[in-house]
């Protein structure tokens, strides 16, 4: 419940759509690949260094972790397919013989599957999200604020408590 309220708050805030979209897209990496991976360190650095909506980033990371858990067998199979694809063997071999390649642990099927899906989905998802957030703010925001669901949510004791603690900005 809190997460939904928080997401709505973010969407309704003045935060730049690209900041929110980028946060969600970066969270894709955290969620779909094992957390303690070298590339996730870079993702966290990007999230902290650039003006990306951190709340959304953390929230989306949890969300995508659940997605990653549900789709782990598929990610594993996709990664395995890539690693054992004859056409790519020379590329993987070259990468395997670099220190960066070894430290990245790319040669693990789930790790590579999640990473590749995240990379492939990054740009399209970013564009879709930016367009979606903008569209939401123009077309749905005013209607949503007046909707019964939002009114009920806003009037709930939980939301009051949330606002008192400064959770909503």
């Amino acid at each position: 419940m809190m997460q939904i309220i928080r997401l709505l708050k973010t969407l309704n805030s003045d935060a730049a759509p690209s900041s929110i979209a980028l946060a969600i897209c970066l969270a894709l990496f955290i969620g779909l690949t094992p957390v303690f991976s070298a590339h996730n360190l870079i993702i966290v650095l990007i999230a902290l260094l650039f003006r990306i909506h951190l709340g959304t980033f953390i929230l989306a990371s949890f969300g995508f972790s659940l997605v990653g858990l549900a789709f782990e067998p598929l990610l594993e199979r996709f990664g395995y397919f890539l690693l054992t694809n004859d056409a790519m063997t020379s590329f993987w071999t070259a990468l395997y013989n670099t220190q960066l390649g070894r430290l990245s642990l790319f040669n693990y099927s789930t790790q590579l599957g999640g990473l590749c899906i995240s990379l492939v989905a990054f740009v399209p998802l970013l564009l879709v999200l930016i367009w979606g957030i903008k569209s939401y703010r123009i077309r749905i925001k005013a209607w949503a604020e007046k909707s019964k669901l939002i009114v009920i949510l806003r009037s709930s004791s939980l939301f009051q408590l949330y606002e008192k603690t400064g959770g909503a900005s």
């Binding site: 094992p34 594993e76 054992t84 063997t89 993987w92 395997y96 040669n107 789930t110 590579l112 599957g113």
Partner: peptide, 19 residues
């Protein structure tokens, strides 16, 4: 290219020619 026999949280480990 060799495939390891065990599964970890990162999936199956594939070994390539080690130079």
């Amino acid at each position: 290219v060799q495939e390891s026999q065990f599964l970890t949280e990162r999936g199956r480990r594939i070994l390539f020619q080690d130079n």
